[in-house]
Simulated scan of single mutants.
Amino acid sequence: MDQFIRSLTLNRAEVPSFLEYPFNLAAIRNLEILSFHPQVTFIVGENGSGKSTILEAIAVAYGFNPEGGTKNFNFSSKATHSRLNNYIRLVKGLKKPGDGFFLRAESFYNLATNIDELDSAPSFGPPLINSYGGRSLHEQSHGESFFAVFQNKFRGNGIYILDEPEAALSPSRQMSMIARIHELVGQGSQFIIATHSPIIMAYPQACIYEIQEGFESVKYEETEHYQIMKVFLNNTKKMLAILMEDLK
């Protein structure tokens, strides 16, 4: 009961058709109930399996802007989010978060732009960018700006929904992100993360769902991402020879 989001239920009886997007996706087609770890839940799977779609629906149903940010953001560059959020029900715990953020890699540029635009308008309060480290996110590299959000904007006791946060991070930064996640978990936070990164999903004692024909709870070493990366790193020359032979 201490966690912010306990589970998700798909209102299957109200779905118009499981042949239509987004209900035809592997992540949604067989979905009934999805339970979340009180600290860290990972959602992994192949491109097009529905990871980002389900994460977006969770974020929007919880009250976040579809393009990311805190609940106070309401900008929209182009409305492309699915209607899945209208067909799910989130079961919340008794505890209410003191902080929260929806971070999605594909619209991070729009978020950074909106922060700059808000700060350029007349205001009686401190600049919004102060909460992000005091330096425009556009004046930093993609990876630096991503990490500035993790380090400065995430304050703890919060619900953090992250869509492919590794997109801009080097392997060493991904390891630093694990440390930051652990610090925030110790401060009472809950994470729901969609990722392709075998580094980030190594966070211990997390729940990992791999999308196959549905959501399958798996151990870290059982994930396809981990197994493929392990085979490649342990047999690099052989794997490259096979891949390049296929191109002939």
Rank of each mutant, 00 (worst) to 15 (best):
F4Y: 15
R12C: 10
E14L: 15
P16R: 09
S17I: 04
N30M: 06
I33R: 10
I33T: 10
V44E: 03
G48Q: 05
G50A: 01
K51M: 08
S52G: 04
S52T: 15
S52K: 04
I54H: 07
I54C: 03
L55G: 00
A57H: 02
V60I: 13
V60S: 13
V60G: 14
A61V: 00
N65W: 10
G68S: 06
G68T: 08
G69W: 11
T70H: 00
N72W: 11
S77Y: 15
S77A: 11
H81W: 13
S82E: 06
S82V: 10
S82N: 08
I88H: 08
I88T: 10
P97A: 00
F101E: 06
L103P: 03
S107I: 05
F108M: 02
L111T: 03
T113G: 14
T113N: 12
I115L: 12
D119E: 01
G133Q: 04
R135P: 02
S136F: 03
S141I: 12
H142D: 07
H142R: 13
N152P: 03
N152A: 02
K153T: 01
K153I: 00
R155M: 13
N157F: 11
L162D: 01
P171M: 01
R173F: 08
R173I: 08
Q174N: 02
A179G: 05
A179P: 00
A179D: 06
H182T: 07
T195W: 03
T195M: 05
H196C: 06
P198T: 07
P198K: 05
I199K: 07
I199D: 04
Y209G: 14
E210M: 12
S217Y: 00
E221R: 12
T223Y: 07
H225E: 14
Q227W: 04
I228A: 13
N235R: 15
T236I: 12
